[in-house]
Amino acid sequence: MELLWQLLVNGVILGSEYALLGVSWGIIFHITGTFHFAHGAVFSVGAYSAIFFSNVLGWPLLPAAMAGITVAVIVGMAMERFAYAPMRRIGATPMTVLITSLGMLIILQNVFPILFGSASRTFPDVNIIPIELGSAFLTNVLLYKVIAAWGLFGAVMAFLYYTRPGKALRAVGSNPEMAQVVGFNIGNIYLLAYAIGSALAAVAGVLQTMDTGASPANGTFAVIIASMSVLLGGMGSLTGSALGGFFIGMAMSLSIWKLPSEWQLTVGFGLLIILITVRPRGFLGGKLTKTEV
């Protein structure tokens, strides 16, 4: 039973981490419709930039993390502004945009090992404090993950529902043509979506670096988890993306109860396949209708 309790606690932590990833990718996907693979690279840019500011320039952890997140936001927005937006203007197919995104992911994910080495890197001065929760153990960093995930999710939802720019984002997400007619600047709103999504991804990247360290392949894994979470949560629902991520994380953690940990991803993926078969529109997705005839 003690193992189960520990796994549940771990599940909440992993689930929160994945929920954050799901929301970070979901806000971009739901609003712009772009299959943003390069999001995985943005995740890594956040982590490695923070490492650069901390380890190379010797900044304290918090300012280094903030600077890292800022760099990631700039990179994410630059991808939209200089890669996706020009392609949309010339009427590129979604497949072309998707392949471009994949190209950017591959390029950046191979730049990091050249710059930072293939081994896992972490910050020099993370102060890890163990915390006891009944018979389960966790650390302060893991607690930050949970707090950051749900705090940021709440902040994003509040932003989307209670502020003018947030409402504009939702309007564009649900009906871009109409929003354009009403006078929204689609380009700027898309940029905003990339800024928010990139910031959230970078937070996840920095927190992961504090916990287990950054390595080059983490970004690709992050975007896989993020897109799986969004699919499971349902198209068009950000709350769904968070729940989808939480569910996958929890399921992967609980699978350790009976299976070796290497099979976590297989279990998560298997569950996704089963759930998508039973409920194609995901947890909270709107009714799947055929493309308007």
């Binding site: 896989i224 969004v230 991803l265 993926f269 998508i276 194609p280 529109r281 799947l288």
Partner: peptide, 23 residues
């Protein structure tokens, strides 16, 4: 499961499948 719904689903599921198979 993917193509019953849409080609978007195939992107995500094939991505995950790739990782699982190598796993």
């Amino acid at each position: 499961p993917a193509l019953r719904v849409s080609a978007d689903y195939l992107v995500v599921l094939s991505f995950g499948f790739q990782m699982v198979v190598v796993g």
